[in-house]
């Protein structure tokens, strides 16, 4: 082949080939994901041992504060988004929303959290949580974050707990499960009662079609005199967090909500424990694990790079920056 190419003696062909190879390498990096089996082995080797590493915690908080400033920026507030501020959608190209008289009143004055938070639980929705009996551990934290309006009905309480301080709500859920809140809103308001007086964290300015449903969720809750506060995710913050993880080798189109929340928790809390993060089809005991603890519906593929995200979390777990709980929680062992 080399002989064949050389006989052309054309530099441009060489250049084109090089560019092609580089592109190929960029899109499909040589780095190979370890197989599920290897990850399971790795997790099993680590076992339940985990040592808190204050320097790691401080380092990550510093890194995150430098890049994304979660304390001030994680939600859209009147402070960081005054009237006339242009919010660029982080999930779309060339779309922006200018804060106007209509949207400005929806923003909270300032980040309403009592910082710093001590112990935080970030609860993913992985099927690993099923029959884990982690509910008690989760509830023991000072601040519990959950993803995408998960069900907290009776049958799950033992595994996922009851307390919620912040729950994210994807506009796509509102579109799918609540007909965009255009018709009856009762079902939505009722289902939100499960989260007590928590903050509802909505990425209203990430995707264009998500803005209206998110604002409508605000209307629905305010109309029903609910004591929940809707916080709109700051697209700037989401974008910066996305870049932060991309530099560390997470190559999905978009980070999962779980990783956003973990990043937020790392920036806000002294001690972070993550539950229900397990994006693999088999568990530690080689048994199949459902995708969510409440159903087994796979998401559309190619959007999130869950395994890569999990590896990142596992690195942090090993370094003692945060704790990832995999497998059932055994109570008499810890604390």
């Amino acid at each position: 082949i080399m002989m064949f190419l050389r006989c052309h003696r054309s530099k441009s062909v060489w250049a084109a080939l090089c560019v092609l190879v580089l592109c190929w390498l960029y899109i499909f990096p040589v780095y190979r994901m370890p197989s599920d089996k290897e990850i399971v082995d790795e997790v099993l080797r680590q076992g339940q041992t985990w040592r808190r590493n204050q320097t790691g915690i401080d380092l990550y908080r510093k890194l995150l504060t430098e890049c994304c400033d979660p304390k001030r920026m994680f939600a859209v507030t009147k402070e960081n988004s005054p009237l006339g501020k242009v919010l660029w959608y982080d999930g779309e190209l060339y779309h922006y929303h200018t804060v106007n008289n209509e949207t400005y009143p929806f923003f909270v004055q300032d980040i309403p959290l009592q910082l710093p938070l001590k112990k935080c639980s970030v609860v993913g929705n992985g099927g690993m949580l099923k029959n884990s009996a982690c509910g008690r551990d989760i509830d023991q934290a000072d601040f519990v974050m959950r993803c995408n309006l998960p069900p907290l009905s009776k049958e799950y309480v033992n595994d996922v707990g009851t307390r919620t301080h912040l729950v994210t709500a994807n506009p796509s859920i509102i579109e799918k499960s609540f007909q965009n809140l255009l018709w009856s809103r009762k079902a939505f308001v009722e289902s939100m009662k499960a989260y007590g007086s928590s903050y509802i964290y909505m990425p209203a300015f990430s995707m264009k079609p998500g803005t209206d449903p998110s604002l409508r969720a605000y209307h629905a809750l305010a109309d029903s005199a609910s004591n929940q506060t809707v916080l709109f995710a700051n697209p700037d913050f989401l974008k910066k967090v996305g870049h932060f993880w991309k530099r560390r080798g997470v190559h999905g189109k978009r980070l999962s909500t779980g990783l956003f929340l973990v990043s937020l928790a790392l920036g806000l809390c002294d001690e972070v424990t993550a539950y229900g993060f397990w994006p693999f089809a088999t568990g530690l005991d080689e048994q199949p694990v459902s995708h969510h603890y409440y159903d087994n519906v796979l998401p559309s593929s190619g959007f999130h790079a869950m395994p890569e995200e999990f590896l990142q979390l596992w690195q942090l777990h090993k370094s003692g920056t945060l704790r990832v709980r995999v497998g059932p929680c055994v109570h008499h062992v810890d604390e």
Binding site: L182, R185, D212, L215, R216, H219, A220, A222, D223
Partner: peptide
């Protein structure tokens, strides 16, 4: 009624 509903109510 796509936004607020309470005022109408």
């Amino acid at each position: 009624l796509e936004k607020w509903r309470r005022p109408f109510y």
